[in-house]
């Protein structure tokens, strides 16, 4: 099993970052929060690996 990747791993980082922000265009904070929650669940399911997910949760909490 691989560990959580914490080094650059996305081709075209600027493109992705812009798309991420565009996805939130026109949404209220409440709608954005809801979108973020859906996004997290979709990505978590794609990763699937419980160990990697726990590492990601820890990294997000700055542990």
């Amino acid at each position: 099993m691989t560990d959580l990747i914490l080094t650059p791993n996305i081709d075209g980082p600027d493109d992705f970052y812009a798309e991420l922000l565009e996805t939130h265009d026109g949404l209220t904070t409440e709608q954005s929060n809801a979108l973020n929650a859906r996004l997290i669940l979709i990505l978590a399911n794609h990763i699937g690996d419980r160990k990697v997910l726990s590492q990601a949760l820890g990294a997000a909490r700055k542990e």
Binding site: A34, A37, I40, N45
Partner: peptide, 16 residues
């Protein structure tokens, strides 16, 4: 927030 996101996604996506 997460509870509602799960319910929202569950309509179209079986993973949720």
């Amino acid at each position: 927030l997460f509870r509602d996101a799960v319910l929202d996604l569950s309509e179209r996506h079986s993973f949720a």
